[in-house]
Design a protein around this nucleic acid. Structure first.
Lengths: 191, 191
DNA sequence: TTGAAACTATACAGACCTGTATGTATACTA
DNA sequence: TAGTATACATACAGGTCTGTATAGTTTCAA
């Protein structure tokens, strides 16, 4: 096992634990134990648990961004279809057995102090979704983009939260249906 | 200070800490210290931290339910106005300086194990919102109530999450605007 | 084959956690 | 006024946490 892949292995195991149990609830000893490494090896690759957590947050940004763009840009052509494809992707995501809610919502919820580095990181990574929707809507001049973009973003966040709390049996489908209504409204009315 | 109010005092202080810092991050010693009581007094009123946490979750259900119904039923008459009033109330809530996100989203995020009592409690208390929206929509026969109710619930959850993560500068207003569009759509089309 | 870098195993320091034990003081009730 | 329930302060038991210290072992390249 090469040097680099050992570091990645530790990060993978740690990420899985952070995601499933939470950051505070996951101890360094447990990461060490489940990684089958020595504690000093972990502290050789990561200066502290703090650094490991920040690597975890960054890792999810990379993975999610890639996955998102792949899935959405695959088939959709028109802005309307691209926007609706977002909700199809959410549905796939929610259906996975490993689905465990949104890392950033959970992290922000666990470290609500607005000046905490984890909260700020989560907040920053989250901005990606709205930026993507905005970029798709840039193809639609003479549309009230701010209103539509906000509405869609709220539906995405709502669906993720509902999936996390299991308060809606089909959050992605319901969000998609609602999204269709407001997309058609704003596109048709040019306002 | 009477017996009963001392217990309430402890619960108030503890709730504030749980809400601001998180449940795991708040130690019993800190609750004791900020309550200006003896540790044994706390353990005399609550068998364990666990019992204190469950009391905290229940307390928020009571308060939020009351506040919600008061605020919403005050002025609104028609189903349409009652539904829109929900988002006005959210706007007031988000604007308060003590606003710290939704207790139940945060608790579920901190204890994601679906069999954990805190997760289940949070999930159950959360169901209240959808039930309320459903009850308002019961006044509207021949409307696709399931679709509209789901859409509105997702907008509510999305607005709360966006307010928590500060990813939208005006989550309640944007959610209200979007809600208006879908309400008018479903009510007008009778579907 | 020799030497440096990486990894391993174990122990432990110091801080924090929940919950208990003990004895004293206060306040209400009979 | 005597007795009882409640609250007090302090100490501590036993566990967990992060991070370090130390010494032995593997790996790999020169």
């Amino acid at each position: 096992m090469a040097n680099k892949s050992k570091k990645e292995h530790i990060l993978t195991v740690a990420s899985d634990l952070f995601n499933k149990k939470g950051i505070r609830a996951t101890g360094v000893d447990q990461v060490v134990s489940e990684s089958n490494i020595a504690k000093m090896t972990l502290y050789n690759h990561f200066r502290s648990k703090d650094e490991l957590v920040l690597a975890y947050l960054m890792k999810y940004d990379d993975e999610w961004r890639k996955r998102f763009e792949d899935s959405v840009n695959k088939s959709a052509k028109t802005p309307r279809d691209k926007l609706l494809a977002v909700f199809d992707m959410l549905g796939e995501w929610f259906g996975e057995p490993e689905f465990n809610g949104c890392v950033y919502i959970k992290t922000a919820a666990e470290f609500m102090d607005h000046s905490h580095p984890y909260y700020e990181a989560a907040r920053n990574y989250k901005a990606f979704m709205k930026k993507y929707i905005d970029s798709v809507l840039n193809e639609c001049p003479s549309v009230n983009r701010e209103a539509l973009s906000s509405g869609l973003s709220l539906l995405v966040e709502g669906a993720i939260t509902a999936a996390m709390l299991q308060t809606d049996p089909k959050p992605a489908e319901h969000a998609r249906d609602t999204a269709r209504v407001i997309i058609d409204y704003y596109l048709a009315n040019n306002k």
